[in-house]
């Protein structure tokens, strides 16, 4: 018991000093971005950017410029969907541009891992592939790959969508379609005519799409 007490008191003394290698302080600009990513962002997005829950997007392998733009958009309140406000505004409020660039680089350097999908409906996946590759001309919805790349890998500020959680992708498509907080992209018109089933099929295809 004495040793336990000594360990406790020693720990408290150590705690008086900020440890930059394991800090969870968002406002301290001396905390390296990879420390922030591991100590804080990992809680939702996974330590390597491969989130477990489809509530939160996978960030592994994501385009660096896209991540920078999104984090700045959260910080400024421009990306204003319900989930943006609920989860991300506060987390980004004190981030500097340097911290944001560091976080974007951290996640870009990791490799996205495919989630095991319960979706085995080949018809659904085939419909999704058709939309991804050819769009839906009748609804004036262009092919996803025209902007997001031949295998959904993204480019610069256009995000990687291959391997992303289907539920997250569907939610974003709905947000674009309803113009509910992600302005400044062509996605509102792209998604204008998509049905829920079409969103589901293309999202399911993309979740299973390895790059």
């Amino acid at each position: 018991m004495k040793q336990f007490s000594l360990i406790l008191l020693s720990s408290l003394l150590i705690a008086g000093c900020s440890n930059l290698d394991r800090s969870r302080d968002l406002a301290n600009q001396n905390v390296r971005p990879e420390v922030t990513a591991r100590q804080l962002c990992s809680d939702c997005h996974g330590v390597d950017g491969n989130s477990v829950s489809p509530n939160f997007p996978k960030l592994a392998g994501q385009q660096e410029e896209y991540l920078v733009k999104q984090l700045q958009s959260f910080r400024h309140g421009d990306r204003a969907s319900e989930q943006s406000y609920q989860y991300m505004w506060g987390m980004t409020a004190t981030l500097t541009d340097e911290q944001i660039k560091g976080l974007a680089h951290y996640y870009n350097q990791h490799v996205i891992k495919l989630s095991l999908s319960k979706e085995t409906d080949r018809i659904l996946l085939a419909k999704g592939k058709e939309i991804f590759e050819n769009g839906i001309p009748a609804k004036q919805s262009p092919a996803c790959k025209l902007c997001h790349g031949a295998v959904g890998e993204g480019m610069a500020t256009i995000p990687r969508i291959a391997g992303q959680h289907a539920a997250y992708l569907v939610r974003q498509l709905v947000i674009f379609q309803e113009n509910a907080g992600r302005p400044g992209t062509p996605m509102e018109s792209v998604t204008h005519g998509l049905s829920a089933a079409e969103m589901d099929s293309v999202a399911s295809y993309l979740q299973a799409l390895g790059v």
Binding site: D43, Y87, W89, G90, M91, A93
Partner: peptide, 26 residues
């Protein structure tokens, strides 16, 4: 919530006390 800048539902399942989300547990 003021400390993290997040909404209650980040830590509480469905935003309702007391059940915690995986993030709330961490």
């Amino acid at each position: 919530a003021r400390q993290t800048g997040q909404s209650c539902l980040a830590c509480h399942a469905g935003g309702q006390f007391p059940e915690l989300t995986p993030y709330g547990r961490l």
